[in-house]
Design a protein around this nucleic acid. Structure first.
Lengths: 191, 191
DNA sequence: GGGTGAACTTGTCAATGCCTAGATTGCGCG
DNA sequence: CGCGCAATCTAGGCATTGACAAGTTCACCC
């Protein structure tokens, strides 16, 4: 898996080097700040080298999104309860912020990429199976769980929860959040 | 308010013209696709004219974000229940997709803009007052409601709910979603 | 009718994405 | 061993963009 040989002409593992550099940039300043030429400079190769591995900008981001969906699907697969599913989702977003920021932005990605479609399908399946057997219809239950986790993760990464969390661990806060929701449901004050 | 005079040199209402053009572009292809020179062309002015009104790209997006927070705060102010608050939130995202896509992306905005900070504060206040008086602590309740609405709105705009909605009205689906959540809370199968 | 400042233009520069053509390397195959 | 071949990377160029600087037009006011 880990090829770290340094060669003169051939980089050895340029594809992975560019990916990790891209993840650094995205995690720091978002996908907009990403420049293929900058990534090439960081890897010590010519400005057109990345194009060989990813074709273009959308290709690179699509590869990242596909990798992200693979990781997310694996993480969700380890959840043992519905609430745990949400925690895993939030944990993934916090652990892989760059992947997460790219995965749900169709305008940045190749619309017809096979690998991405397959990986995205795996994530969807994990969501669906974890929600199976709840009341009402399946689609609504999936949307409820997904919206909750995705909203929290998104607001967390965009630093919109800083004032509300003030220091608390995000995962703990998310757990408390679901508890709160369930309690207020048992005793709805406003309807 | 509506100045529609066509003059030779001075555009008349270039600021608004650029804003609406920008909203069109963003709604169609996201903030990344936005080009100041393209907006200038659409308005029939020189390529540097927008800079006079917005300084730079971040200035334009900041103005849009501030306007969006003003509109959102107003919409939330009309909510008469907690659930209605969520519906208003989702409705706003659907009605003003361009504003919504910019409002929660700090990396695209001026961090120290006064007008934006004030408008954002108004939105926050609406969220807090609407959630006041619920059980547990205030911050957790706000995060719960906000995550739910924001997650649904975000997934909706990024077309990630297409398969799950399949034709249904998003607002109706969101209402059903909250119902589902409250019901499953009363009868938690997986906990 | 002259000054003042806002609104806009023109010109320029560095950086970027993408394309094309060419160079280098490693590898299979005889 | 060596020959071809494909994968990998380089070099150069073009159109577009954001940002900046300096100049121009115009409305307004005394």
């Amino acid at each position: 898996m880990t090829v770290t040989t340094e060669r003169a002409y051939h980089h050895g593992d340029l594809r992975r080097a560019i990916l990790t550099a891209a993840l650094d940039v995205i995690a720091a300043d978002g996908p907009t700040a990403l420049s293929l030429r900058d990534l090439a400079r960081r890897a010590g190769v010519s400005h057109a080298a990345p194009a060989h591995h990813f074709k273009d900008r959308a290709g690179l981001l699509t590869a990242i999104a596909a990798e992200g969906h693979g990781l997310l699907a694996a993480a969700l697969g380890e959840a043992e309860s519905l609430r745990d599913l949400g925690v895993q989702y939030v944990r993934f977003a916090a652990a892989y912020p760059a992947h997460f920021q790219v995965m749900f932005r169709p305008e940045l990605l190749r619309p017809d990429d096979q690998e991405l479609a397959a990986a995205r399908e795996r994530t969807r399946n994990q969501l669906h199976t974890a929600v199976t057997g709840r009341g009402a219809d399946q689609a609504t239950a999936v949307m409820a769980a997904w919206s909750m986790a995705h909203g929290f993760a998104t607001l967390l990464l965009s630093r919109n929860l800083d004032g509300l969390l003030d220091g608390r661990d995000p995962e703990q806060a998310f757990l408390a959040l679901t508890n709160e929701l369930f309690q207020s449901a048992a005793n709805p004050a406003t309807g």
